[in-house]
Design a protein around this nucleic acid. Sequence first.
DNA 1: GCGACAG
DNA 2: ATCTTGTCGC
Length: 247
Amino acid sequence: MPLDLLKASRIQEILSKKVQIKRLDYRPKTVVGLDISYKPGQDTIGCAAAVAIRLDDLKIIDYSIVIDEVTIPYIPGFLAFREMPLMFKALIRLLKRLNEKPVLMVNGHGISHPRKLGIASHIGVVTDLPSIGVAGKLLYGDIVRLKGRDMIIVEGIIAGFVVSGGRDRKKSYYISIGHKISIEDLEYYIDRLFEPEFHCAKPPYPIHIADVMSREAARGRDNFIKWISRNKHLFDLYTEHLEIFSN
DNA sequence: GCGACAG
DNA sequence: ATCTTGTCGC
């Protein structure tokens, strides 16, 4: 059996008690987007991307790509046990080069989770960094209209909110508190990180970039390098970090 | 028992 | 997550 769900639940319940819901106690200059893609035809080979984006001009200042085997299957409610190991590896590498504390933006839920510890909260607590969850589907909680917004309510508290976009608001993104951050912080950052030209039909910028980078890298070095050269205008790298497959 | 179910 | 097929629009 790949994963002991009872033990995993216990871990989530214990760690969820360490989640802090409070305002940011500093002004992050950088946000790190985290996402994982899988090699086509082989969902056991994952590719994690950690991308550091400067908040004032939205330039990519650094990134880290890690490719490795992923053995834990995806089970709703336990995504972190599948994706956190690789995501964490990419993140740690990036943080060692980043001389500042960023806010993390993770593809997945924060406290809008059955045990209030989605992958965004999990990685936030483990690193003790502020974190935000960004998901494309609701996993847990009720949607209630408050203050002109669709809020995600979990156990009577506001866990996050919904941002709808695209033609006829067809697409929705579920933004939630991860760790060491408040709803007000979420609104401040999230509203500024959606790309205006896409009308919220694509994820917030750091997630969008991490998503594209991890997918291109998962499809091979050539694709990734081509994507980089096609998008040099997004970068502001003082060093070249083409470290794919270095694992 | 039935429906729901991040990536 | 990934694949597939087809459609619309720049």
